[in-house]
Amino acid sequence: MMTKIYIVYYSMYGHVEKLAEEIKKGALSVEGVEAKMWQVPETLPEEVLNKMGAPPKSDVPIISPNELAEADGIVFGFPTRFGMMAAQFKAFLDATGGLWRAQQLAGKPAGIFYSTGSQGGGQETTPLTAITQLAHHGMLFVPIGYTFGAGMFEMENVKGGSPYGAGTFAGDGSRFPTELELEQAFHQGKYFATIARKLKESF
């Protein structure tokens, strides 16, 4: 049986979506795994998004909370707002009360990836505070640790990410993920999918 991985994310300017694409590629590189990207619903009116300079959303489908239960493993991605996940993603998770009551996500592996505006803007606090959502659902957090090897110790160039998961810096919005950041996202997808497949095969 195939292991079904969902990459569920919110991306206002496209930075998180770029990471999501690489995570999907990484997951698909694992035999016996299928991966699908999903966006969470937008909560801001179109008028506000236009004023913020947000580009149109891609054609990646919008997920409903109940569809999370179909996945064998889920990687959640979001930008930072004041060191925590964006409100759009929090609103989506707040709507998973039915899944929580039925314990439909309990025991499922979960990963986290993210973007921040600056180096001190939440590369660790964002995933760290997001883990509380996973804990209440009984999900199994799968960090990448230092499995990315030498890439984790890059000091010559600015690089997002942490042991919690892949990350990127958006800066003023004009900076997009570097090759190294994309490689880390690919690695996370591959690593996470390998763990999720092992978990599924063990039951």
Rank of each mutant, 00 (worst) to 15 (best):
A35K: 10
S29Y: 01
K25H: 02
T129Y: 11
V75Y: 05
R197L: 05
G107D: 05
M12S: 12
R197M: 03
G160M: 05
L199I: 13
F169K: 12
E179A: 15
Y146E: 01
A193R: 00
G138Y: 05
F141E: 04
K90F: 00
G173M: 02
G173H: 07
Q119D: 03
L93T: 13
A27P: 07
R197W: 01
T96G: 07
P163M: 03
R197T: 01
G167I: 02
K190L: 02
R175G: 03
F203L: 13
I23R: 09
S58R: 13
K36L: 10
G171F: 07
Y13L: 09
Y114S: 14
K190A: 09
E124R: 12
Q123A: 10
T168Q: 03
F113P: 06
A95E: 11
K4G: 03
T168N: 04
Y13R: 14
G121D: 04
A20V: 03
G14A: 13
E47K: 14
E183R: 15
E179T: 12
I7S: 07
V142N: 02
Q119F: 01
L134S: 11
Y6N: 11
E183F: 08
P127I: 00
V60A: 12
G122H: 08
T80A: 15
S64H: 10
E154D: 10
K108Q: 03
M1A: 13
G53K: 12
T125G: 09
F78L: 13
V75P: 10
F113R: 08
K36Q: 15
E70D: 15
V30L: 07
M37R: 15
A102D: 11
K57H: 09
K159A: 07
Y9C: 04
A87V: 11
I23P: 03
A27Q: 06
D72V: 07
G73S: 09
K51W: 00
F203V: 10
N50A: 02
T3L: 09
L19P: 02
S162G: 04
A110C: 11
S115M: 10
F186V: 08
F192I: 01
A102S: 15
H15Y: 01
V48Q: 14
G32M: 04
Q39W: 00
T43D: 06
L105E: 08
P109H: 07
N50W: 00
A193Q: 01
G117C: 10
A106C: 12
V16R: 11
W38N: 06
E22H: 11
W38V: 02
E31A: 15
